[in-house]
Simulated assay, not measured.
Amino acid sequence: MDSPWYISEVEILIRLLVALVLGGMIGFEREQHNHAAGFRTNILVCVGACLMMLLSIYGFSDFVNELNVRVDPARLAAAVITGVGFLGAGTILFTGKKISGLTTAASLWVVAAIGLAVGAGFYFASGAVTLMVILTLWLFNKLEQRFIRNKKSYVIHLICEDRTALMKTTQDKLKEHRATLHKLSLEDADGSRLRHVSDIDEKLIMITYFVDIERKQHDAMISLIHELKQVEGVRWIEYE
């Protein structure tokens, strides 16, 4: 049939399988790097979006010729994009050091768009975007880590005596190990932290340092923690 509102069952199956393959290709890359939305999640999003697009275009073809019915194939597609936005928000986490999951959320959004495109029959565009996404997630990630984001963030917690000289000493240690300090906080050490300290008769504070160290200098971080632990007045140390 030449009607734009008709699609064969074979073509439906082909489009769903194409969506499965393309979504799986992106999901495989995400799974390899242990991200929240991995192989199966991306497949489900892509196939689901494809099905919604097929339903939006062809699912209501029986009502096309009704006088009081207006068919709009874009309505369900718009709803899919909105729904995936909520799903992507669930992958975004704030760990205290940084916000993570933004790339995974964006990849889910693109996977949904790929599924919609496959459902509408845009095979070339869907395949091209899939390759672009994989290139962006894999190759550009390596380039970014090498030339842009070549530092790793750490949070260092110190329980120590409330002395100004001690703070200066610890910050000098950070400079010696080429750790970039971009934030610090001071607070009274709470009970849950103090259980790690044997003598709690005197007033102790907790200093939290947010630092960046070059990824290739991971040994410098271990050495820094060891030297901070040896500073007089430091009772307990932890880093993450």
Rank of each mutant, 00 (worst) to 15 (best):
M1A: 13
M1G: 13
S3Q: 07
I7R: 09
I12R: 04
I14K: 12
L17T: 12
L17R: 02
L17W: 03
G24R: 03
F28R: 10
E29C: 02
A36T: 06
T41W: 05
V47Q: 03
G48D: 06
C50S: 13
L54I: 07
I57M: 11
G59Y: 02
F60A: 05
S61H: 13
D62N: 14
F63W: 11
N65H: 13
N68R: 01
N68V: 02
R70D: 02
D72N: 10
R75A: 02
T82R: 07
T82M: 11
V84T: 03
G85K: 05
F86C: 13
G90C: 13
T91Q: 10
G96K: 06
I99W: 00
S100P: 00
T103S: 09
A105H: 09
L108T: 04
W109M: 09
V111Y: 03
V111F: 00
V111H: 01
V111L: 02
A113S: 12
A113V: 07
G115F: 05
V118N: 02
G121M: 12
F122W: 12
F122N: 09
F124H: 14
S126I: 07
G127N: 00
L131S: 11
L131T: 11
V133F: 14
V133L: 15
L135V: 15
L135D: 10
F140P: 01
F147L: 09
I148A: 10
R149E: 02
K151N: 08
K152H: 11
K152R: 14
V155Y: 13
I156K: 04
L158Y: 05
L158R: 04
R163W: 09
R163N: 12
A165W: 11
L166I: 03
H177M: 10
T180A: 11
L186H: 12
A189C: 12
R193E: 13
L194M: 14
L194G: 10
L194D: 12
D199T: 03
I200P: 03
E202P: 07
E202S: 13
L204S: 01
I205N: 07
T208F: 06
T208I: 08
V211M: 08
D212I: 05
I213A: 04
Q217M: 07
H226Y: 11
E227Q: 11
L228H: 02
Q230H: 15
Q230C: 11
G233D: 07
R235D: 09
I237V: 13
E238H: 13
E238N: 13
